[in-house]
Amino acid sequence: MDVRIGILALQGNVSEHIDAFRHALERMGRGTSSEVFEVRNTAEIAICNALAIPGGESTTISRLIEKNHLHEPLCTFSGGIFATCAGMVLMATRVDDVRVRTLGLIDMAVDRNAFGRQKESFEAELSIKGLKGGPFHAIFIRAPVATCVGTGVTVLSRMNQGVVGVEYGKHMALSFHPELSCDTRLHERFLKKLGVCFRSEQKTSDMSKLTLPDERQIQ
């Protein structure tokens, strides 16, 4: 399956997500047959089979979603959504701030800035459920947490303050910023769930194995 990944480019660290997805696709041997690009309107969202909602300011992104009439197209999007930090806030059903209108795509309640202000931002080695290759070097920047999650939502990782990573159907939402880590294992996992497989896993006569899953490592 070829994949078209749209990065919601309203505000925030968009280019890092583009680079991370391109890198992940390359590692999966899918670099040439897939596209990663910025999306800003309904027509651009409609041609994607995956979206990413990047980190940024959730109040600002929420307002721009309204202003650009993107609430409906995002809520009804049929593909998977990869959401980080502010993106995770937007995916929730409930948030501790009435001014943020969430998309309600993952049944969870989220607290914004749960760890405090920027000086309390941190890096940590995080163990993530089902992720091979050791702990994930996670970068938390004024990060949110999920304070409770609904049934059917898989918790990927948890800290004292709450849940910092979830999977639900095709969606993945993370408190931290994998796009800043130079480690694409979570991007790859998201893509695999969507049905994008490693070139080397395809049952074809093509034996040019560009990337093996077990070659993955933290750069």
Binding site: A9, L10, Q11, N13, E16, G56, E57, T60
Partner: peptide, 10 residues
């Protein structure tokens, strides 16, 4: 630098 990056487009 990550914090600064989150302000992009703002």
């Amino acid at each position: 630098r990550g914090f600064a990056s989150m302000q992009k487009g703002g």
